[in-house]
Amino acid sequence: MNAPLLSVEGLRLAFGGVVAIDGLTFAVGEAEIVSVIGPNGAGKTSAFNCVTGFYRPTAGSVRLRGRDITGLRPSAVAALGVARTFQNLRLFGEMSVLDNVRAGTHLRIRQNVLDALLHTPRYRRSERESTEQAHHWLDFAGLRGDRYGPARALPYGEQRRVEIARALARRPDLLLLDEPAAGLNHTEKAEMLDLIRRIREQGVAIVLIEHDMGLVMDVSQRVVVLNFGREIADGPPDEVRRDPQVVEAYLGRDADEAEIEQARASVAGGRDGGA
């Protein structure tokens, strides 16, 4: 049997006495979209950080196509075909939009210091490739704004697109999106939904952290629910939606108003919840 693309087993993360993740197990198949949901502070982003190498888990393992990648540094994980976005946009603000996306091509373009110093044909070719790829992925992500100016000058929604284009330029097999729709308006959310689908059509598997239940229920093959670092559900959206523990977690006293609203809407009737 083939190993799944990503498998997380018994993941546990503790900072001193505080347990952020307490036994998380889930798997993601090729070109599958899995959402990780849960109230704020449930450990979703921490889980992302463990998978991508930013945190070293206290226990448990992370495997990519069966290969143990636990404890590898983030750049090594990225080199194996994992890309991510960050919850609070982490663009290279002072650099041009194109340069930001060229970051995704860093591992793909071949040139050495001598090529760069002498401007050899290989240097020009690799730079041109990098630029072309950057344009390609910006087109794919539907960026409308100026590509030559600094990334920080773009409107928020556009910056989200740049971040995703940057991750896609890495040509990942697995893409982790941390709240890609946060702060977007209705139109932008619809476009994001479309973008996520198109990314999947490229054969990329996606793990999605998202608070917008409409989007989550609409796009995911499976949903993993975390609460206080514990995994309380893992299954197809329809099943998870009816899970009493999930409803409890979302309607419990720790959820904030907006989440309760979202949860109600999604429990009641599917995708109109947030989108």
């Binding site: 750049s75 990225a78 663009l91 290279f92 970051a103 860093h106 591992l107 940057r166």
Partner: peptide
């Protein structure tokens, strides 16, 4: 600009 984002893109910082 951002060491974490650079690492995430595969740059061995």
């Amino acid at each position: 600009e951002d060491e974490d984002a650079a690492e995430a893109m595969g740059v061995h910082t």
